[in-house]
Amino acid sequence: MQLRSLSKQQVYEQLKGPGLGLVTGPFVFRIFSSLGDVATQLATLYADAELAATDSFTDFHVRVRLAKGLRRFYRPQSLFDLDGIVPFKPLPGKQALALLEWGMNWCIYSHAHNYLIIHGAVLERNGEALLLPAPSGSGKSTLCAALMMRGWRLLSDELILLDPDTGLVHPLCRPVSLKNQSIDILRHFAPDAVFTDPIPDTTKGTVAHLRPTLDSMQRVSIPARPRWVVFPHYAAGSSTHLAPQAKADVFMALVDNAFNYSILGARGFDALASAVDHVDGFQAEYSSLDDVIAALDKMTGVISA
């Protein structure tokens, strides 16, 4: 059963009561909150996500709530907790959804060490995965969202989950987090895309979340094999250019972007080396989304040369 089968009131009541069980790829989150805005935004963003039964196994019990006391009335603050533990400082009350999304990412990259987890986006076409590893500010999420709206299947905007045993990348298929000018760029690029209202003044600027495409959500259980690694770099005014990268450079850049490489040790090295054996790496410099998508489609064989 998908979340869209519930009314917004039912979503709110589940969040406030037994918790809303959301299946996000290999993980089940049970989310608790009494914040009406959070219920509304979750109902929009996760409309096509599978619901987990109340008595099903849950990986992470998380809650987003307002801080108690006078704070509730004067500049309210929102708090995120995992099993009652608050790992972050509070954020302004209106940033509760962003805090929840960032907190859910934290749950995964801090605990799911059965995967090698790399900071980056990942999409798929024809069973082959395109990895976009990059730090914040590189244009990764903008490019990821644009590719998704042009038919690529979204596996993740933020966390690349590489299974060391199989070499496959597993989808999370959660909302794409867009920041500042990227929000309007994507609204113009994909008028049919579904966004939440922008949240201003976060530590990352103004943030809005984009709902994954239906196709991406429907195939959330299907992993993909890494085939390309592209390091995106938005440079205003530049022409689109894809520069091949040496495998050792690709490897070291993936290490730099990995959350838990040091925890996995030799197992992480072996997993990453095996992945790099089978990928082609590129540095992509661009300023036009249409141009870079055309170049990537051509490179990956989605359209003929």
Binding site: K247, A248, F251, V276, D277
Partner: peptide
Amino acid sequence: WRAWDDATV
């Protein structure tokens, strides 16, 4: 270690 044409890690 892994050796590719360009370098070894």
